[in-house]
Design a binder for these strands. Structure first.
Lengths: 357, 357
DNA sequence: CCGATTCTTTGAATCGTTTCATTGTTACGA
DNA sequence: TCGTAACAATGAAACGATTCAAAGAATCGG
């Protein structure tokens, strides 16, 4: 009832030594069948469950990996988390999940907690400046992999997504389907992601002689901010309108779509093609299914675990920064004049453009 | 570099006994200022961090609480998780989060893991039939609180939300704003939540003599399923239309809204009032801001931790089932003829309708 | 200055598992 | 039958923190 059975209880019950019970659990081959049966039966009868604390005290480290994300509610991270958990499970580790909620204090608390738990390694999508903490951890033999952030390869491994390439992909797609007067809708360019996506788009536009790119600053990254931009667009004279709009994320794109379709003066995609970024669940079920740029979240999570495993295996401090290329998901909102309606994906096939450090 | 400092290293470095270091950490009042200073300095110089495994081996239990949810990506659970983490932090515990993803296998793995970790207690939103496992845990002194599921008070504490009351609240609101020909849109009534919400709505309708409630079966709980139902509605003759529609969740409601607003033949809320359930983030930024029923997720998470604490404190097996009442959030999609536009909340003030077991 | 009291500090024992040198057992070829 | 492998089982030591009885130091009143 109260105290749960220990390996010693099992040993007594099966009339063997504690070492033998341990061998049954960890090296079954070393134990004869007869003994093994007796021990297993005792385990079953007593309902013995290994005490992980004792185990990891002896081992010197746990079999868990810490993962700190900015926001578990964000589908991007949710997907990364799930992939990381699955990949970790394959190699016999469990993931301890922490949600910093963009709060440096919570982030720091989780690092403390994980350090006390002696996690094998840490995956983190940092909020504040944690380089000092991470350096300290590395010195103690706890490697870190940065997630969704490009790191200095001299110091850390990292997995990230090439936002410039994503921006290029989006703009290029609008150009490929015949649009020339493009517009970029995005929040403050102080956000790195927004900046990079814009830069990629500009790169694509520069490749086509008669193409132009207008920048429409949005007050944030929400549906409402998008609607604000959309409302401005519908008030313009026909000649002043863009014919292709690229939004820095899907929420903005959905807001723009709401404005344009609400008044029914402009049609998507005939008058204006629209493409977003992130490929959230809502994109496919928008009034006009939204084209978007999908980030390889599963690959991010999986690769982060793999990079961590690499660092754990070899004791040489060899770091790698793996950069993924996002992929284009074509739906109705950017259908060409001929209007093929099937959903299409193209672009990266989740292959890593890896570089060695 | 390699091995991290232990309490013994600290003791040597500060020239005191290990017990003294432990006292500095756990009972600072017992130690003189001089000694304390020396020890703290040693801790700082060596970068000592407590080894939680050793601590909990000695203590016999950890300072963590296991939490297994059906889907971390679901905003409902995300919010519950965050509240539970905060409440646990207040009492000095940490939450280990597991995402079963509606998979009984993953759920079982997490129970195993948490049992090996010797968690203090378990909060679970179960997928499969885990009563046997939970009984076993209870016998070993690991209490469980069921989350978002009403439990037999003889065996477990639980926190849940009264879906019948939510359904009543939604329908009642439509009736209160003058609608009489109501329709309920929902997936298979085999889902308990859907069933209960419908029942609550029927109860409300039965209270008003000339009111009626039509049931529109949807093929699922998605935006697309909602659009399917909406498409059927717009094809009806004007006289056959409901004037108030209650959807079993917000996704369905958004789908219905898309259909109705797309063709611009029916206006929301003038021709048809629309209300959803869950109050997801998108509700407020829909083309017509969507009225909805909000579940007190924070209270769920917080209360679950509190009930667990109760069970841990007293060793008498006294269980409680706490049932929360959801609240109505009024937005434009159900605005009355006079059309007050402000967002209003009413209904439960997050107070628990508790019953003792 | 002494004995009593309170305040500090000590260090061995303990938690449950794994490891590993040692001992005990069995089997087999010569 | 003996010597030697190969195989099984043993149990003490170690991991690092906490606890607690006991020893030691400081303080105080008389």
């Amino acid at each position: 009832m109260s105290r749960s059975a220990s390996i010693k209880d099992v040993a007594n019950h099966a009339r063997v030594a504690v070492g033998t019970v341990s061998n049954v659990l960890n090296y079954p081959d070393r134990v004869s069948q007869r003994t093994k049966d007796r021990v297993l039966q005792a385990i079953d009868e007593l309902g013995f469950v290994r005490n992980d604390a004792a185990r990891q005290l002896r081992a010197g480290h746990s079999r868990t990996i810490g993962l700190i994300v900015l926001d578990v509610g964000n589908p991007f991270f949710t997907s990364v988390v799930r992939a990381a958990e699955d990949a970790a499970a394959l190699q016999g580790s469990a993931v301890l999940l922490g949600d910093s909620g963009h709060d440096a204090g919570r982030e720091s608390n989780y690092i403390d907690l994980f350090q006390e738990q002696r996690v094998q390694g840490l995956l983190i999508s940092p909020v504040g400046d944690v380089t000092e903490r991470l350096d300290q951890l590395r010195e103690r033999g706890v490697p870190t992999v940065l997630v969704d952030r490009l790191a200095d390869e001299a110091k850390y491994s990292s997995v990230s997504v090439d936002d410039d390439a994503g921006g290029y992909l989006a703009a290029r797609h609008l150009l490929d389907t015949g649009r020339r007067r493009l517009a970029f809708v995005g929040g403050p360019t102080s956000i790195r992601q927004v900046e990079d996506r814009l830069q990629g788009a500009q790169r694509a536009v520069a490749e086509v002689p008669d193409a132009s790119l207008e920048i429409l600053d949005s007050a944030g990254q929400t549906v409402l901010a998008g609607r604000g931009v959309g409302d401005q667009l519908v008030r313009r004279a026909a000649g002043e309108l863009p014919d292709g709009v690229f939004c820095a994320n899907d929420l903005l794109a959905l807001g723009v779509m709401q404005s344009l379709t609400m008044l029914h003066t402009l049609r998507i995609p005939e008058d204006i093609a629209l493409i977003g970024y992130d490929d959230i669940d809502f994109a496919v079920s928008a009034v006009v299914p939204l084209s978007s740029i999908r980030q390889p979240t599963e690959a991010l999570g999986r690769t982060a675990i793999e990079l961590l495993a690499e660092e754990l295996d070899s004791d040489k401090p060899r770091h790698r920064a793996v950069i993924f290329t996002p992929e284009l998901v074509v739906r109705q909102s950017t259908a060409g004049p001929e209007g093929s309606s099937a959903e299409t994906r193209s672009g990266s096939s989740e292959e890593a453009a890896a570089t060695a450090g």
